[in-house]
Design a protein around this nucleic acid. Structure first.
Length: 152
DNA sequence: GCCAACGTTGGC
DNA sequence: GCCAACGTTGGC
């Protein structure tokens, strides 16, 4: 079992949207590091912190799980999509994603400001200065610590 | 809306 | 392969 974090802007796709849809292809990721993490490291059943970025306040909203093997992001082939990539092809797709499934919404959102206060989380990639990665690994100990912050 | 950080692009 | 220009992310 591995642990991760994904970022999303809640006005685009929130934890409530995921709850309604139950499962969702994590499309639109156009960063090689983030792609490699989905392609090479995520396995069905892995658990993923669901982070709301560009929100008031930004923070962790809940947990989802990896719900598929990696496969090509369909939006890269769709010239009507904002994620269309003319340099990619069906034969040699550039962008790979996984589906994520809703697990739970936290009873309270854990704000970024609060996360920064815990020494236990000081090494989280999310909290490193200038970090822009939208899909990243999380240590098991960090994940478990965050779960203890929300009861229910 | 600002801007720091940093990834990508493209000319050379 | 260097690096300046440009675009994007995301907190504030």
């Amino acid at each position: 079992m591995n642990y991760f974090l994904v970022k999303t802007e809640p006005n685009v796709f929130s934890i409530d949207d995921l709850k309604k849809k139950k499962s969702e292809p994590w499309d639109g990721v156009r960063n090689y590091q983030a792609r490699n993490i989905m392609r090479d490291h995520m396995k069905p059943g892995d658990r993923v912190l669901f982070y709301h970025s560009n929100a008031c306040p930004p923070g962790i909203a809940g947990i989802c799980t990896v719900a598929s093997a990696p496969y090509p992001d369909p939006t890269q082939f769709d010239n009507k999509s904002r994620y269309f990539d003319p340099k990619s092809s069906v034969d040699n797709p550039k962008w790979i994603l996984v589906d994520v499934a809703f697990e739970r919404k936290f009873k309270r959102l854990i704000p970024l400001d609060e996360l920064k206060q815990y020494p236990e989380l000081a090494k989280m990639r999310l909290l490193q200065r200038g970090n822009r990665l939208s899909v990243m690994p999380v240590e098991k100990s960090e994940f478990k610590f965050i779960e203890t912050l929300v009861h229910g």
